[in-house]
Amino acid sequence: MAAPEQLPPRVGSALDELRATIDRAAELAREIEARPPEAGDLSARLADVESDREELSTKLAEYEQQVGRLMNLYVATYQLHATLDPSEVQATIAEIAINLLGAERFVLLFWKNDARDSSGECEIAFAQGMEDDQTGLYPNGIYGGGDPAVDATLSDGVLRIGPIDGSKALACVPLTVQGATVGALVILKLFDHKAMLRAEDRDLLDLIAAHAASALFAARVYSNTDRKLKTLESLVALVRRQ
C-alpha cells in the first residue's frame, strides 16, 4: 500500500479532510464528555422550575379558596342589606347559618324590650331544628338563661366558639348595633357531614355579629315607620273625605 505522501493530490486532500473531521469528532466527543455537569445543571434548573410550578399551583389553590371565602362574605353582606323586610332579613340570617355554616340546629335570640334590666329573658326570633331539643333551655319561644356561653355572650358581646365547658352551644355569635349587644345567634348542632366549624367560618361569624343585627334593626325601624305612615295617610284620606 502506498504512503499517503505518494497519493495523488486529490486523495491527500480528502485524507486531510478526513483527519480534520476525525479531529473535530474527537473534539465534539470531548465536549460531550464535558457536558454532564451542564446537563446536571439543566436537570437542577428543571427541578427548580417544577418546584416553582408546584408552589404556584398550591398558591393558586389557596387564592381560589380565598376568593371563595370573600365571595361568601360579599354575598352574605349583600343579601343581609338587600331588603327592608324584617322577616326577609331573619330568613337571610337563617340561610347563612344553614347554607354557608352548615348549622342544622340554631336559635336567633333578641333581648325582650328592656329585658336586660328586668326579666333577663330573650325572645327566640327564629329557630331551626329545635323540635327535638333536649336542653330545655328554649321553651315556648323564650330563652331565660342557663347556658353559660350564651349568657356570657349576651352579657359581654364576645363571640364564642365551642366546645365550651358546661355549654351545649357550638358557637355563640353576639348581635350588636352601635356597640350594644341586642341578641345572639346560638348554633347548637352542625349537619353530620360537617364535622366542625372551620377557620374560614370565623369570618362569617364575625360578619353576622357585625351586620345581622344592624340590618334587622334598620328593617324593623323602616317597617314601623312605614306602618305609621300608612296609618297617617289613611287618616288624612278619611278626614279629607269628610
Binding site: M71, Y78, T92, I98, N99
Partner: peptide
C-alpha cells in the same frame, strides 16, 4: 328556595 344561594351562583 334560598335567595342567598341564587345570588351566590350569580357571582360564581
Amino acid at each position: 328556595d334560598s335567595k342567598l344561594l341564587h345570588r351566590m351562583f350569580e357571582m360564581m
